[in-house]
């Protein structure tokens, strides 16, 4: 297995965006997907930084793809999506609108926001030109194994969500704006204050979700530390790491060491705790009763889920 860095889900300043992507050039990852996934209103703030980031990453030997938006409704969003096809890079389709603009036979990647649940869908996407598919995070390990086999059969690399807050939902409504009593068109970019999303707790104060503009994420960071062997066994080709504001370079190195067999899961979890002591982890979509579950919590000395 190798490593893919997914598109940044949050709204960072242009300078921070540039510095982050420049830093990935020296990270032990194989490919990077960049661009705006969540909200088209953010794109103008860093759009002119994209060519330089691409040049730096390509020069460092990384494969690079551009993501489409996850939900395309407006005319300018359709235009931006159509323009992706002309950028000369692989497009990662995260809304099928992007596929409508790719000439038949053009190779493309498929992101985790596209519903790929079965062999028939993989076969159809492969015929249409898909070469790489990151599966939706909610799939259980048994399905992942079936789909990895189908991917191998059709020459499509299969990726699984390896690390980071899980993208659980996307809406036409901006929750950051709504919280501040504003509409989406007049949002005043409230999401910029929360570089990893805004924590959403239950009425009992239990950490549960995170708000990121029109997107809703899990509070917990998905973490494949305990799943690496099972995923390799299933035939998965890559793990996807989703950017976060703290310690991301260390996270990339840890997953690299974990894949190389140089770091055990417990030690890795301990080190993740050093980056952010409050970071909750989950891997329940793969092997638990529900997405929020964490297999580490079943070990006697580990932190309970809602500690």
């Amino acid at each position: 297995m190798d490593l893919t860095v997914g598109p940044l889900q949050f709204f960072w300043s242009a300078d921070r965006w540039s510095a982050f992507h420049a830093g990935l050039a020296s990270a032990p990852v194989d490919r990077v997907v960049l661009g705006e996934l969540v909200c088209s209103k953010r794109l103008p703030f860093f759009q002119d930084r994209i060519p330089e980031a691409i040049a730096t990453l390509v020069a460092a030997g990384k494969e690079v793809a551009l993501t489409s938006l996850a939900l395309v409704t407006l005319k300018r969003e359709r235009k931006a999506t159509a323009d992706l096809a002309a950028m000369g890079l692989a497009v990662e389709v995260n809304d099928l609108t992007a596929l409508a603009h790719l000439p038949e036979g053009t190779p493309f990647w498929v992101g985790p926001m596209v519903n790929v649940y079965n062999e028939g869908t993989i076969a159809w996407l492969a015929r249409r030109g898909a070469t790489r598919i990151c599966l939706p995070p909610e799939l259980p390990l048994e399905s992942v194994a079936q789909l990895a086999r189908a991917g191998a059969e059709h020459g499509v690399a299969i990726e699984v969500w390896g690390h980071g807050r899980l993208p659980l939902a996307i809406s036409g409504r901006c929750y950051h704006a709504r919280m501040h009593g504003r509409t989406k068109d007049n949002c005043q970019f409230a999401c910029e204050d929360d570089p990893d999303g805004l924590d959403v707790k239950t009425l009992d104060g239990q950490r549960f979700l995170a708000m990121n503009g029109v997107q809703t994420l899990s509070d917990s960071h998905a973490c494949a530390a305990h799943q690496v062997e099972a995923l390799a066994e299933a035939g998965v080709d890559a793990l996807r790491l989703s950017p976060q504001s703290r310690g991301f370079d260390r996270i990339c190195r840890m997953y690299r060491q974990r894949l190389d067999g140089d770091l055990c899961p417990d030690r890795m979890v301990e080190e993740l705790g050093r980056i952010d002591a409050g970071m909750q982890l989950s891997d329940g979509f793969l092997t638990g009763q529900r997405g929020a579950d964490w297999s580490g919590a079943r070990q006697p000395d580990a932190r309970p889920l809602d500690a």
């Binding site: 809406s171 899990s218 529900r290």
Partner: peptide, 21 residues
């Protein structure tokens, strides 16, 4: 639904049972 339908896994995150699956 306030979320885009077919693209929401809030329910399976909390309960393991989802609209899509």
């Amino acid at each position: 639904c306030v979320m885009a339908e077919g693209r929401c896994s809030l329910s399976s995150f909390a309960t393991g049972r989802s609209p899509n699956m």
